[in-house]
């Protein structure tokens, strides 16, 4: 009894705010429920059928999400690793640089997006004015579908890279110095040390980072909401934003729940694949 009471604060919270809604979403996804009229009808798998087979927007949206993930994950990880390699060893000012790169992580995503939206204005924007100085005529970043996608990816990477950098720094510092010293005695080049020693030893961290970054990239919402609103020409309309639109703009809660379930399955499958690849690589 006492034991249950002790865990009850978090257990009750877990049940009410996590497990409950999670089960509810499964049920909602099989209803046609208009929030305004409060009329809900059980429709079985009709929402899934519509999304997967009939709704042309759905596949466009999935495609956008995949492009976003394919752009964001490698860029984020490469940059995080590079920064971590530069900042893992102590030198004068290292704490300052780590702080600078980590600061965006703790910044409000909406504030971040508003500032970038301002900087990325067409002709009058700071970025384009800087580009003009070196003779480049920059595009109207957030009004051209492809550039808009690139812009949200890059600004998102700059915002989130600090987190992965910290994870990599921690992993790098956990690698015993002896390995590197031994390799150097054997005449290994710096590249060889990285390729043959550091990179394999970072593999568990790399997997974790890859999984959380991929999940995070599928869940991206606030950034899109503020910077592009899914536009232009639906060029940045990603899955999480589309779910929001269906649920909170059109009030089709059933349909939005079905889409959320599909997103859940996609992300879960990607995670399983990544874990399996890692296992295979380790063998």
């Amino acid at each position: 009894m006492e034991a249950w009471l002790f865990v009850s604060p978090s257990a009750v919270g877990f049940l009410i705010f996590f497990l409950g809604p999670l089960c509810a979403v499964v049920y909602f996804s099989m209803t046609e429920w208009n929030l305004l009229t409060q009329q809900a009808a059980f429709v079985g798998l009709a929402n899934f059928e519509d999304a997967l087979l009939e709704n042309p927007d759905f596949w466009h949206v999935v495609r956008n999400s995949v492009i976003f993930a394919l752009g964001l994950v490698p860029l984020n990880m490469a940059l995080a690793l590079t920064l971590a390699l530069a900042l893992s060893r102590p030198f004068f000012g290292v704490v300052f640089f780590r702080t600078v790169f980590f600061a965006p992580v703790v910044t409000s995503a909406i504030a971040w997006a508003i500032v970038w939206k301002f900087l990325l204005q067409g002709e009058g924007g700071f970025i384009n004015q800087m580009l003009a100085i070196v003779g480049i005529s920059g595009p109207n970043w957030l009004r051209e579908p492809n550039w808009a996608m690139a812009a949200v990816i890059v600004t998102r990477v700059i915002k989130m890279v600090g987190l992965n950098m910290i994870l990599y720094i921690a992993a790098l510092q956990a690698i015993p110095r002896d390995y590197e010293a031994a390799a150097r005695l054997e005449g290994a080049s710096r590249w060889q040390i990285f390729r043959m020693i550091i990179w394999p030893l970072l593999a568990p961290t790399t997997l974790i980072i890859m999984v959380i970054t991929t999940i995070g990239s599928f869940k991206v919402f606030d950034h899109i909401y503020q910077m592009t609103g899914g536009g232009p020409e639906n060029g940045t309309l990603v899955l999480a934003f589309y779910i929001y639109q269906q649920g909170f703009k059109f009030f089709n809660i059933g349909y939005a729940s079905a889409l959320a379930m599909i997103m859940f399955v996609i992300v879960m499958m990607l995670t399983i694949v990544q874990v399996m690849l890692r296992r295979k690589g380790a063998e």
Partner: peptide, 13 residues
């Protein structure tokens, strides 16, 4: 918007 450039164009504030 695009010939006279007299209306604030898309992407500008």
């Amino acid at each position: 918007v695009f010939k006279d450039k007299s209306i604030v164009p898309p992407g500008e504030q």
